[in-house]
Design a protein around this nucleic acid. Structure first.
Lengths: 231, 231
DNA sequence: TGACTCTTAGGACATATGTCCTTTCCAAAA
DNA sequence: TTTTGGAAAGGACATATGTCCTAAGAGTCA
């Protein structure tokens, strides 16, 4: 990650309404970093000295086993804090982080933040609210993953990125750009995702044409998802 | 849950060093509740008005699917906050909670706590630290559950409650009192736990005699656990 | 003592999902 | 146009785990 000294954090602070969280006098202590697609931003076990705020781009958070193989993960878009738990607990990095697209992070040192906390309660509150949201999302996703098979999760996912109106189905932006990434997002293997997609296609719920997925039967999809919504 | 008006929260505040979190002037606002084994303390979807602190006893946190069957959970012992995420996010209860043993909770109303936050930053900090710990534990457990089969998790669990010294293996208190509870703790079915136990017994790693589990080969167990530690 | 219930134990079978491989397809590079 | 590499698609097989069921042993209560 490269620090961009010429860049101004102000733009992002305004865009994400962080004005109250970081008071005027603190702004000069905020750095701006740029990263490129594919960069390994943080590795598990690493010592962290700064708190990062993802303000542009997409990143992937994952865990590697000591055996090196399997991984679990989530994809994150702005606004997202990286290193918040590490800041509070003074732990080493827990999950590895990789850039999926080019992007930008703001950063502030743990030491500066600790000072900020002394005379500016809104920052502590901000951390608290962020963590509560993260915890909730994490718990929700975990439950979904453990309670339902891939088929249900896939249906939920497809629903979450689609909206139906006037006989037409609109797709919002997908969190993933291809099937392999989708498999990772769902926490399964590419092979298995394919299997499930095939089943849904043969059930006339979706249609696959040159790599894209089109929803044919929103109602069946809803039934399959059992009312679950991803994220 | 029954409020015990005669009980004094002071004992617990001292025992768990909560003095700095709840200043003198706030203490009268803290209530003491008692619960009995088997009580359903909170149900998913319920509206919460108070934050609870488990100070005595054991509880079970779980999720029921709308279909009513499967569940996932953790067991919690003091000191544990219940309703912290709900307080911060003002959500309805996410997981259901049931008493595994008799026990005691402290409680304070969301309204009072919101006031406390205004002039007493240490409470916000306490919430933050608690949530960070919870998040970390949750993420750790989730990773373990998703990355490793039951066999590995069981080995980790057995290791976590055992210590080896001078040729003897000591068992610390088990988190669970019987195999069915252990299956729940591990997030698997009783049937499957049994299968895995049988395998470990036939591999001479453990020995089963009238319902109890004795570790025969700590080294093999460690290898099986692959260095993972539960909790 | 007998009826009951809970826990332990495990057989039989089904399903979800992973791993390994092969083939096809398409787009970008040469 | 041909080559090449990644992505898509799926066959074959193995494994982890769930569901349903039966049965035996221990403790409890009438």
């Amino acid at each position: 990650m490269k620090e961009i000294k010429t860049a101004d954090a102000e733009v992002y602070i305004k865009r994400y309404e962080l004005g109250k969280v970081f008071p005027e006098h603190f702004r000069p202590l905020i750095k701006v970093y740029q990263f490129k697609k594919g960069n390994v931003l943080f590795s598990a076990g690493e010592e962290l000295e700064e708190l990062y705020i993802l303000v542009d781009g997409k990143i992937k958070i994952f865990t590697l086993t000591p055996e090196g193989k399997s991984l679990i993960n989530r994809f994150k878009r702005p606004l997202e804090l990286i290193g918040d738990v590490e800041y509070v607990k003074r732990n080493t990095v827990f999950n590895s982080v990789e850039a999926v697209t080019d992007g930008v992070m703001l950063a502030a040192s743990f030491a500066d933040l600790a000072n900020l906390e002394q005379d500016h309660p809104p920052f502590t509150r901000f951390l608290l609210e962020t963590l509560a949201r993260k915890f909730y999302t994490e718990a929700h996703t975990t439950n979904l993953n453990m309670l339902y098979p891939v088929e249900v999760r896939l249906a939920s996912y497809l629903l979450s990125i689609s909206s139906f109106s006037e006989g037409t189905i609109f797709h919002q932006e997908m969190h993933t750009s291809n099937l392999m990434e989708l498999a990772e997002w769902l926490g399964t293997s590419y092979r298995h995702l394919n299997r499930v997609l095939k089943k849904m296609a043969s059930d006339n719920i979706i249609e696959r044409a040159n790599g894209s997925i089109a929803i044919k039967d929103l109602e069946k999809l809803s039934i399959l998802a059992k009312g679950n919504i991803y994220e």
